[in-house]
């Protein structure tokens, strides 16, 4: 069971083009795996699951800020995608189609869960302490680096949860997972201008909510 992204940030490598990254280069492309899955080849679908489960989980996790919810929703996304695989025509990429399922499921879940939000955050990877940007940022703000990182994580997630679902999604996909505006536009079924606008207002809101940590 290969796990090429182990040890890397949960958001996935920024700028990595879905379906054409290292995972896809190692095996058959998405479309051939999808065609085999449509004919009932579960092993082909397993390959697709292993190719995308980290990114789908990360997206859901950044939206919910809850590990258990993200786990359930990621599993349900892949189950739903398998059940609906016959309807996949290949007009969009499999990755975009899968993302849409995950995003719709998550937004529906969040609407039902409204006012009952409870964070269950994942631990920070030890690599965070060695990220030069973060080190510079944290040492600028406080001398107590370890405490500050976990504190920042909690404040950041609390602020994210105060954004609307669409604004949170744009920030999670662009600033955390590194997707391009065009890819986000495909996933959210809107044009690039709308994505940029949402991103701008989401960042403004976050900046206001986290003003104490960004001085």
């Amino acid at each position: 069971m290969s796990n090429p992204a182990r040890g890397k940030p949960a958001g996935g490598p920024p700028g990595k083009e879905p379906g054409k990254g290292r995972d896809a280069a190692e095996g058959p492309d998405d479309l051939s795996l999808v065609r085999r899955s449509q004919q009932g080849d579960l092993r082909a679908y397993d390959d697709l699951v292993r190719r995308y489960h980290e990114r789908i989980y990360a997206t859901v996790y950044h939206m919910t800020a809850n590990h258990e919810d993200a786990n359930d929703l990621a599993q349900e996304t892949f189950i739903k995608a398998y059940q609906a695989l016959r309807t996949f025509k290949g007009d969009a990429s499999f990755y975009t189609w899968l993302y849409r399922i995950a995003v719709n499921k998550t937004i529906n879940f969040l609407k039902q869960r409204r006012n009952k939000a409870a964070m269950s955050l994942n631990d920070l990877d030890f690599n965070a302490e060695h990220d030069p940007d973060l080190v510079a940022f944290v040492s600028d703000k406080t001398p107590r680096r370890d405490a500050a990182l976990s504190e920042l994580q909690e404040k950041l997630n609390s602020a994210m949860l105060k954004l609307s679902e669409t604004h949170r999604l744009v920030v999670a996909l662009h600033d955390v997972q590194g997707l391009s505006h065009e890819q986000i536009g495909e996933i959210m079924d809107c044009n690039v201008g709308t994505v940029r606008s949402r991103l701008f207002y989401a960042r403004q809101q976050l900046q206001g909510l986290l003003a104490d940590y960004l001085k």
Binding site: A10, N71, D125, F137, L152, V176
Partner: peptide, 20 residues
């Protein structure tokens, strides 16, 4: 820069295998 913190939020060890 602050949002980079979220990239380092990792589920428990062996979680990816369990999820798959």
């Amino acid at each position: 820069a602050l949002l980079k913190v979220k990239r380092y939020e990792q589920p428990p060890p062996r979680y990816w295998d369990d999820l798959a």
